[in-house]
Nucleic acid binder design. Sequence first.
DNA 1: GTCTATAGCGGGATAGAC
DNA 2: GTCTATCCCGCTATAGAC
Lengths: 208, 208
Amino acid sequence: MNTKEKIFDVSLELFSKKGYDSVSLREIAEEVGIKKSSIYSHYSSKEAILMDIFDYLTNLFEYDEMLNSKDLDLNANNEILLQNPEKFYHKGSEAMKEMFSQEKNLKIWKLLFIQMHHNEVIRKFFQDEILAKPIMFWEEFFTILKENNIIRQECNPKLLAKEYYSFPIYLILEICVEYEDIPQSSLEDFFNQAEEHANFLLDCVKVN
Amino acid sequence: MNTKEKIFDVSLELFSKKGYDSVSLREIAEEVGIKKSSIYSHYSSKEAILMDIFDYLTNLFEYDEMLNSKDLDLNANNEILLQNPEKFYHKGSEAMKEMFSQEKNLKIWKLLFIQMHHNEVIRKFFQDEILAKPIMFWEEFFTILKENNIIRQECNPKLLAKEYYSFPIYLILEICVEYEDIPQSSLEDFFNQAEEHANFLLDCVKVN
DNA sequence: GTCTATAGCGGGATAGAC
DNA sequence: GTCTATCCCGCTATAGAC
């Protein structure tokens, strides 16, 4: 691993634990094993490191979207929906699990939680990618379930979207507040709770 | 209003917008209308201001708990529960609404959200008072409803507690991310959504 | 690319006149 | 209590030797 990659990794690690402001270049350099001025051979400024990490996040999200677009394009999967509603029914909870399957992802979430108030670009990203877009997806999801009479007609898809999504967000917040390094046991517990939530909510609203 | 109170108010305002680290004494002093060194006639350090604000929060929470203890002592209200289950049934949603009835309270939430990663004392407070204790309350709430056969026997009170509480937490997060100053219209929307959520969840689990 | 040395700045905090 | 002046410190960033 070259020095620039080390700087990147160490910075992500420290920023996600303490926040951008509280981490000094000296601290990063020490952890990497160089002097702080050497950082400027790789990055033009401290802010540039943060933005490099942020670009990485952005790409990661776009990559995930690309991967998922096949399975989660709700319109394209209408046939599956009509032929095998039960299978489609739990696609949501699987997607949610996948979202947090990597510890790295949770580290990124924590960084976003800590950093969004400081940096306008990151705040906007959080607002759009973490809050708004997922809610839109779930709303569409429940709308289709409703249209196809899989869930009860008195259900409000917009409400259900938030019912569905607020739970994992709460779990993430819980984890981020509780741990500096997220233990594996906590992740498994997280999955189980998310799964239980998905089953509960879907059972509540489905026809029959 | 005396100078110390001004410093307090200005600091709460600025800290909740930008976070403790990003606010300088110079900035606070300018807003108050004095020089930064004069702050030390009222507070021994910058940290002392934050801790003064934090003490205020702590008292506010204790005061709320005292006020609510009469109505929300679940054991003491068992009679009401048995005589008039419907009334008790919605006590929860009312308590939830009350929790955010003041704009000041939301400002405090925002401060906690921003600041909890920086300061260990505040992190602990957030973890206990904002996350753990309310969940314990709701778990007890749903346990009693279950014992008295008001909600279905297959319900898991611990899960329901999080189902119930994660929704308003999500709403608060949404508001904190979206606004510097929280507009009245957004607060009303908040109440309506919280109410809709409470009705939805309680309808889902009640017997009949 | 990495180092030492240092500039330049802004932060929190203190001393002492008024 | 408020001011001006100043101190000390740690920060980001730069210059220049190797």
